[in-house]
């Protein structure tokens, strides 16, 4: 269950406390996040909304270990990630986080299969085990017949489904989706949201999603708004 008031949820998978993030632009200090609290449990599907520049993507980057907070703590599955070195954080990301980006961020010179296989190259799985995992992930997203296609040979919706397969292939602790439908037409966007909901229902994934799209947000279990650097639960 998602909480933003800072009271402890003993079952929380992700716990954020008093999170601050400041940016410096010359002599100017920009407070993006101020004293933000968040508790997310296993199996939650959370949507973050808010105007441009409100810090949604910054929050996602901090949760994914792509950026470091100015203050506060982020604890995931008992591990405090804000104290990790860059090297440890890379290994942590590989083990715990699956990323889905607005622009899919597939490697254009690799096939769908090779793109999905990338996170598994950081594991100790054998080649045959990797192949099995990749085939499973691609079948979950319905692209078993597109394994040897390059990203340029796929539609936007298919590319995003490959990106989702890549995000889930190593069975990460949670998924971070940054505007996953932002570059897609309505039909493709709905298919992607169906897929994410299915991952929650059938595979008990935990998903945190940033979106501008109210229709995508309403598919989430919880919608949180970023206002003045803090999270506020939306009334639904």
């Amino acid at each position: 269950m998602v909480k933003v008031d800072g009271t402890n949820n003993k079952d929380a998978l992700i716990r954020v406390r008093d999170l601050d993030k400041k940016y410096h632009r010359g002599s100017e200090v920009i407070d993006v996040l101020q004293g933000l609290n968040l508790d997310v449990s296993v199996g939650d599907f959370v949507a973050f909304m808010g105007p441009s520049g409100s810090g949604k993507t910054t929050l996602l980057n901090l949760l994914g270990g792509l950026d470091v907070p100015s203050d506060g703590t982020i604890t995931v599955a008992g591990e405090q990630i804000n104290r990790m070195s860059g090297r440890v954080l890379s290994a942590w990301r590989a083990r715990h986080v699956g990323f889905v980006f607005q622009m899919y961020n597939l490697i254009p010179v690799l096939t769908a299969f090779q793109n999905v296989e990338l996170p598994l190259l950081l594991t100790k799985l054998s080649k045959s085990d990797r192949r099995r995992h990749v085939e499973t992930a691609l079948s979950i997203v319905g692209l078993s017949d597109r394994m040897q296609h390059y990203p340029r040979q796929l539609s936007g919706g298919q590319e995003q489904r490959v990106a989702i397969a890549r995000a889930i292939v190593a069975d990460p602790t949670f998924l971070l989706c940054d505007e996953p439908t932002g570059d897609l037409d309505r039909k493709s966007a709905d298919e992607i949201m169906d897929l994410l909901v299915r991952l929650i229902g059938e595979h008990r994934k935990t998903i945190l999603m940033v979106t501008h799209d109210p229709r995508a947000a309403e598919r989430a279990q919880s919608v949180l708004h970023l206002e003045k650097g803090a999270l506020v639960e939306a009334h639904r």
């Binding site: 090297r87 890379s90 990301r93 590989a94 490697i107 990338l118 950081l122 890549r166």
Partner: peptide, 14 residues
């Protein structure tokens, strides 16, 4: 640079 950042996000180290 975006590809490199993606690889880094996936967990490939510096």
């Amino acid at each position: 640079s975006r590809e490199i950042a993606t690889l880094r996000a996936l967990g490939f180290g510096q």
